[in-house]
Amino acid sequence: MNAARTLHWLLLLPSLLLLALLLGLPLAAMLARSLEPNVLLSFTGPALDNYAYLLSRAYYLQVIWRTLRLAAETMLIAIPLGYAAAMLLQGLSGRAGNLAIMGLTFPILAGPLTVVLGWMALLADGGPFLGPLVEAGLIARPRLLGSEAGVVISLVQFVLPFAVLTLYTGLRQIQPPMHEAARSLGAGALSRFWHVTLPLSLPSVLSAGIITFSLAASSFISPHYLGGAGQLTLTTLVSQFIMATFNAELAAAAAGLLLLLMLGSVVALTAAIGRFIRP
C-alpha cells in the first residue's frame, strides 16, 4: 500500500469507527435478537424461525408487498417530478436559484412530523383543498386519510427535495459544451435531452432513485399517521410488535427483513439503471 492510500484510510478511520460503533453494534445486537424465541414462538435459538414465521403468513407478506409498493410508487412519481424541477432550477439565475433551493429545503428543516400534521389537515375531506369541491358537489367525499393514496402523496412530498437536489447536482455536472456540440450538429431540444442530458444524468437518477426508495420504505411517520392500523407497513408493524405486545424479537426480525429488502431493492435498482450508464 502506498503512502497516499494509507493517508486515505487514516482519514476515513474516524468516520468508519463512528459508523461501526453507532450503527454496526446496535444493528448486530438487533439481528442477534431476531434469532431468539419470544412470547409468540418457542424454539431453541439462535434460529431463523421468526423470519420463517413472518414469511409464511399471507398477512405479513401483504405488509411486505405494501411496503415495497408504496416505496416504488413514491420513487416513480418523485423522480420525473424532481427531474423537471431540477431542470427548471438549473435555468434560474443566482438569487432566484438560491431562493428556490432554500424553499426546497424548508420542508426538510420543518421535520417530517410537522409536515405530516399539515397533510392531515389538508387531506381531510373537510379540508381547504377538497372541502369546497365536496361542498359544490363536484366530487364525491373522498377518503384520503387512512388510504394508500394519502400515504403516497405525503411520501412524494417528503422525498421530493432530496430527489430534486440530487438530480440538480447531477445536471450541473454536465459540461455546457456538450449541449453546444449537440446543437451545432443540428440536434433539436428533444433530441438533445434524449441523447445528451438524460444519458449523462443517469448516475444521479440512480442516486435519486436509491435515496427516494429507501426514504419511503423506511419512513414511519407518514404510514403511521396517514395510513393507520389497516394499512400496516414494515415500519409500523415493527412499532406494533414493540409497543403492543412487547415482542422485541419478532420486531427485530421484521426490521431485519426490511433491511434485507431495501438492500435487495438497491441492488436491483443499480442493476436496472446501471446498464444504461455509459462509463
Partner: peptide, 8 residues
C-alpha cells in the same frame, strides 16, 4: 380478523 375488515 383485520384482513377481512378492510378498515383504515
Amino acid at each position: 380478523v383485520v384482513p377481512s375488515w378492510q378498515a383504515r
